[in-house]
Simulated assay, not measured.
Amino acid sequence: MNQHQQADICASTLYVVPTPIGNLEDITQRALSILGRVDLIAAEDTRHTGLLLQHFAINARLFALHDHNEQQKADILLAKLQQGLSIALVCDAGTPLINDPGYHLVRRCREAGIRVVPLPGPCAAITALSAAGLPSDRFCYEGFLPAKRKGRMDTMQALEQEPRTLIFYESTHRLVESLRDMVAVWGPARYVVLARELTKTWENIYGAPVGELLAWVSEDEHRARGEMVLIVEGFQPQADGLPPEALRTLSLLQKELPLKTAAALAAEIHGLKKNALYRYALEQLGDDN
């Protein structure tokens, strides 16, 4: 069969189908084909998925499968698959199982020898990473930080020296608190990119040292609204001391320029990394206080 031809829907098969995270045009033709032809769609929220299907004129049977019932309902869906039905698994937005329901069902299917077919498609974490300008060859997806401050601080401390780029989801009402805790644990110079409302009308991607990012978010309440991904620079071990001439240049520039600008210029003059000089200057300011 030519790979571009419409694939047949197989009996006793679970299809893991990503759906748009905002822009409906991001859905794939293959996803639409499968959603329109399977026997049943297992959805995180049947009302939400119903609107998506209505938009694309797809009539389908829906089955509610969410965080609160998945372990109980997985066996019901497994039985249907074993009887020969084809089922598509979807979440409200993005790729199922990535901080969304589906793990228990997929695991039960794998254990029972049921075929699981994954489709590529939208994922907020990967979409944000692709535009963050931080290293993407190695990264660590951490999902949502704990809601309570102690758990959040403990998680950040455990990740303090993680060298890989870190990816977090965060909610509107906890963004400022999480950024404050990042400043407290990792220091104000750790570079963080906030990606908001990806693929939507008010999409915004803004990166800065986390101390500056916190100030930027706090200036306008709208900057803390929407669906958010935080991409965090991995831990960067500092070399044994910065060149004395670079520190002298930095000190002179600081007298006339904002700290961030002074660090950038000193780094360019001496061929160093801007963040290294910026961290040094922030540490010096902290020591002076």
Results as ranks from 00 to 15, higher is better:
Met1Pro: 14
Gln3Ile: 14
Ala7Gly: 09
Ala7His: 07
Tyr15Cys: 03
Pro18Glu: 08
Gly22Glu: 00
Ile27His: 03
Leu35His: 07
Val38Glu: 01
Val38Gln: 00
Asp39Val: 08
Asp45Tyr: 01
Leu51Ala: 14
Leu53Glu: 01
Ala57Asp: 15
Leu65Tyr: 08
His68Trp: 09
Asn69Ile: 09
Asn69Gln: 09
Lys73Phe: 12
Leu77Trp: 03
Gly84Asn: 06
Gly84Ile: 09
Leu85Thr: 09
Ile98Leu: 07
Asn99Ser: 15
Pro101Met: 04
Arg108Val: 10
Arg110Ser: 08
Val116His: 07
Pro122Asp: 02
Cys123Lys: 05
Cys123Asp: 10
Thr127Tyr: 03
Gly133Arg: 07
Ser136Tyr: 06
Ser136Ala: 15
Phe139Tyr: 11
Tyr141Met: 11
Thr165Glu: 01
Ile167Trp: 01
Tyr169Gly: 00
Leu175Trp: 00
Leu175Glu: 01
Leu194Lys: 04
Ala195Pro: 02
Thr199Cys: 04
Glu203Pro: 02
Tyr206Gly: 03
Val210Ser: 02
Glu212Gly: 14
Ala215Lys: 08
Glu219Pro: 10
Asp220Gly: 06
Gln236Val: 15
Ala239Cys: 12
Asp240Thr: 15
Pro244Thr: 12
Ala246Thr: 11
Leu250Lys: 01
Leu252Ser: 11
Gln254Glu: 13
Leu265Thr: 13
Gly271Met: 05
Leu272Lys: 04
Lys273Gln: 15
Leu277Val: 10
Leu285Val: 13
Asp288Ala: 15
